[in-house]
Amino acid sequence: MVATISEQNSVSVAKELAIKIEHLNFYFGTGELRKQVLFDISLDLPKGQIVILTGPSGSGKTTLLTLLGALRTLHEGSLQVLGKEIVGLPDKALIPIRRNIGFIFQAHNLFESLSASQNVETSVELTRNIGEKRQLAVDMLGQLGLSDRVDYKPNALSGGQKQRVAIARAMVNRPKIILADEPTAALDKASGRDVVTLMRHFCEEAGTTVLMVTHDNRILDVADRIINLVDGRLESDSDLETQTSRIS
C-alpha cells in the first residue's frame, strides 16, 4: 500500500493539480483543550479525478473536507486549492475561494421556502449571471432528471430528488472542485446509486475534481481513486485508474 502512494505521486506530477496538500496539521480547540485531528497530511488531487475518502468514524474525513472547502482558517503546512495557497489566509479571504467549489452535504440543506429552481438560482446569483439564472437552473435540473419538478418546493420532493436538487445547486456554476460528504447516506440503495452515477457523469464531462466521503461500499466503483484516513493520518491510497483500464 505504501508503494502505491509513491507510485501515485509520480504519475500525477505530469497532470495539473486541483488540490495540493503538504504536511498539513489541524487542531481543534486552543490551549489545554487543543486536540490534533489531522496529522501531516500530504496529498495531490489532479484535475478531473474522482476520489473517494473512506475511514472509520471520527478519523477526520469531514474535517479534511471542510479544510479543502476553505471553510476553516489554517495555520500549519500548505494547502493549495486551484493554485492558491490557503494556509494563513484570514476568514474574509476564504470567501471568494469557496465560489469555485461545489458542496454537497449529507443533509440537502435546501431552502424549504424556495422552489427547486430558485434554490439552484441562489447559486447562479453568486456569478452575477442573473439574466440567465432561471435557464441555467432549469437546464441543470433537467440534466439531473428533474425537468418536471423545477417549480416544486423541497417538501414535495422525495429524498433522492432533494439530493439531486442539492447536486444541481452545487454543480450549476461548473465548479472546478466538488466536495461531497456522504451524499447518499440519507438515500435508499437505488437512488444513492443514481445520484453518484449522475455526479460521475457530469464531473467526467466537465473535468471536475471530486472528493467524496462515503461509508457506502456499494458505490466505491465510481471512484478513480480511494483514500483511507485513520486517526487523522492517510493510511492508504489506491489508484484504480492504473489497475483497471478505463475507457474514456
Binding site: G69, I95, F103, N109, F111, S123, L126
Partner: peptide, 15 residues
C-alpha cells in the same frame, strides 16, 4: 429554522 441553509449559503461563498 433556517440556520443550516444560511450556513450552506456561506459555504457557497455568500458574504
Amino acid at each position: 429554522d433556517h440556520l443550516p441553509e444560511y450556513a450552506t449559503m456561506k459555504a457557497m461563498g455568500y458574504r
